[in-house]
């Protein structure tokens, strides 16, 4: 029997891997994928709690997270397309005009 800790630890590991992806990668699409990774790790936490506590709310929340993730993916990818069209790059080091 796998206990709750194991699931939570696994989820935390996945989440932190996503964070590392976000703070280190230069390719905007991969950064974006790392965000998806973080979202999914959180989903695992929610499902684990739902299952262990016997409450459906966690799984409902996962459902909503997925909906939002879908919307976010659509908008985010549209932004990347627009960005690429203007700057011919997806390197986020070069996308730094939002300052001063």
């Amino acid at each position: 029997m796998i206990d709750l800790h194991t699931y939570l630890g696994l989820s935390a590991t996945g989440f932190i891997l996503g964070v590392i992806g976000v703070v280190t990668r230069r390719n905007a699409i991969i950064v974006f994928m790392s965000i998806e990774l973080m979202l999914n790790s959180v989903n695992l936490t929610l499902v684990a709690f739902s299952s262990f506590l016997g409450d459906a709310t966690g799984q409902i929340l996962v459902f909503f997270v997925m909906t939002v993730a879908a919307a976010e993916a659509a908008v985010g990818l549209a932004i990347i397309i627009a960005l690429f069209r203007n700057k011919q790059t997806v390197n986020i080091d070069e996308i730094n005009i939002l300052k001063w």
Partner: peptide, 16 residues
């Protein structure tokens, strides 16, 4: 959520 998705679709279209 349906509204969220509609807004996302419209936003994506406008942005792209």
């Amino acid at each position: 959520t349906s509204i969220v998705l509609i807004v996302a679709i419209v936003g994506a279209v406008i942005l792209a």
